[in-house]
Computed example of a mutant assay.
Amino acid sequence: MKKTKTLAILGFLLLLSVCTAVAVNATNILQGLSNEDEININSVSVNLILTPEEKEAAINLVLVAPTIKDLLKTADNYTVKASEIFDIRETYEGITLVPKPGVALVTLELNRDYGEEFSVQFVKATVDIEQMEITNTEVKPEVRKPKIIENPMLPNELVERASEFDGVVVTVSGKVSLLGEVFSSIFELDKTVTVFYAHEEATIDVSDIENGDTVTVTGKFVAPNTIYALKIEKRL
Results as ranks from 00 to 15, higher is better:
Glu130Asn: 11
Ala26Asn: 14
Asp128Ala: 05
Lys124Gln: 14
Tyr114Pro: 00
Leu105Lys: 15
Glu164Ile: 11
Ile149Asp: 00
Pro141Tyr: 03
Glu56His: 02
Val159Tyr: 04
Ala65Cys: 05
Asp76Leu: 02
Glu150Gln: 12
Lys69Ser: 10
Thr67Cys: 00
Thr51Trp: 10
Tyr92Met: 06
Gln121Ala: 05
Ile59Met: 14
Ile39Glu: 07
Asn47Val: 02
Ser163Tyr: 10
Glu157Trp: 04
Thr79Glu: 13
Ile41Pro: 00
Asn28Val: 01
Val46Tyr: 04
Arg144His: 06
Lys145Ala: 04
Leu61Lys: 09
Lys73Thr: 10
Val139Ala: 04
Glu157Asn: 06
Leu72Phe: 02
Tyr92Val: 06
Thr135Val: 02
Pro152Thr: 01
Asn35His: 08
Ser119Gly: 12
Lys124Thr: 12
Leu105Glu: 15
Leu72Arg: 11
Glu130His: 10
Ile88Ser: 14
Tyr78Lys: 04
Leu33Trp: 04
Phe86Ile: 02
Lys147Asp: 06
Ile149Ala: 08
Met132His: 11
Val64Thr: 13
Arg161His: 15
Val46Glu: 12
Ile39Ser: 09
Ile85Arg: 11
Lys147Ile: 01
Asp37Val: 09
Gly115Asp: 05
Ser34Cys: 03
Pro99Ser: 07
Gly32Pro: 15
Thr137Glu: 12
Leu110His: 03
Glu130Met: 00
Glu133Asp: 14
Ile148Tyr: 12
Ser83Ala: 10
Arg161Tyr: 06
Thr91Lys: 13
Ser34Val: 02
Pro155Arg: 03
Leu30Val: 14
Thr126Trp: 05
Leu158Val: 07
Lys69Val: 08
Asn156Asp: 13
Glu90Gln: 11
Glu36Lys: 13
Thr91Gln: 12
Ala58Glu: 03
Leu154Glu: 15
Ser43His: 04
Val62Trp: 05
Leu63Cys: 04
Tyr78Trp: 08
Val103Leu: 12
Ile49Lys: 14
Glu56Cys: 02
Ala82Glu: 07
